[in-house]
């Protein structure tokens, strides 16, 4: 009986050890990123704009957090809400780790993207998101720094989601087609390494 118990316990321990070994190997396998990797990571240009509450918003104040940065306009009905929903879903996919991610939505239509309009837009997704706006001159400088092309009064604009790490470096960019699961998988891999 004791002998039988010994083999059962040994068997269970072996299975646990094998599972732990397999998990370790899987965790250390190089992750194939779904987004476009920026290598080496480049410092994300800092900027100061006005948030949806009418307060000054300094981008560098988000150091220590992961940031999803997106450029769009508040009365957009297609690409911008789709990108915001995608970022929200990716955050949700990460569970408790999702709280480490701050979403920042930067205006592309200065006259239309008033703080009030930005508040209405970002609140549809999460009131904790930042809706940053400013004057044409302020925003043009930010667009140029991030390589964002804005035309037709802001209604035609680049459609990139920038992922910025807690050190303030641009790590990845995403463009359609991409899923929330793919973005979340990339983030998990990046967070594991930090």
């Amino acid at each position: 009986m004791d002998r039988k118990l010994f083999w059962v316990v040994t068997g269970i321990l072996l299975v646990i050890a094998a599972a732990a070994g397999a998990a370790t190997i899987i965790n250390h396998l190089p992750h194939s990123f779904n987004g476009s990797v920026i290598n080496p990571p480049a410092p994300a240009p800092d900027f100061t704009l006005t948030d949806q509450h009418g307060q000054f918003f300094e981008f560098s104040s988000l150091r220590g957090k992961y940031v999803f940065l997106y450029f769009g306009y508040s009365h957009c009905t297609n690409a911008c809400p789709a990108a915001m929903a995608l970022m929200t879903q990716a955050r949700n996919q990460l569970g408790s780790q999702g709280s480490q991610i701050q979403v920042v939505f930067v205006a592309t239509d200065p006259p239309g993207d008033t703080p009030q309009a930005m508040a209405t837009f970002v609140d549809r997704f999460d009131p904790s998101y930042v809706g940053a706006t400013g004057t044409q001159a302020q925003l043009s400088a930010v667009w140029a720094e991030y390589g964002v092309v804005v035309e037709d009064g802001g209604e035609t604009h680049s459609d990139y989601i920038y992922l910025i790490d807690p050190s303030g470096n641009m790590r990845m960019t995403y463009s359609q087609p991409i899923t929330a699961e793919e973005i979340a998988a990339d983030l998990r891999a990046i967070m594991r390494k930090v």
């Binding site: 476009s36 920026i38 390589g147 990139y160 641009m170 960019t173 463009s175």
Partner: peptide, 19 residues
């Protein structure tokens, strides 16, 4: 010395991006 883009890629100065 400026950011460039190519389709889905955003390439900051001094960096690379690939597809």
């Amino acid at each position: 010395s400026v950011v460039h883009t190519l389709g889905p890629l955003v390439i900051p100065p001094g960096s690379s991006a690939s597809m």
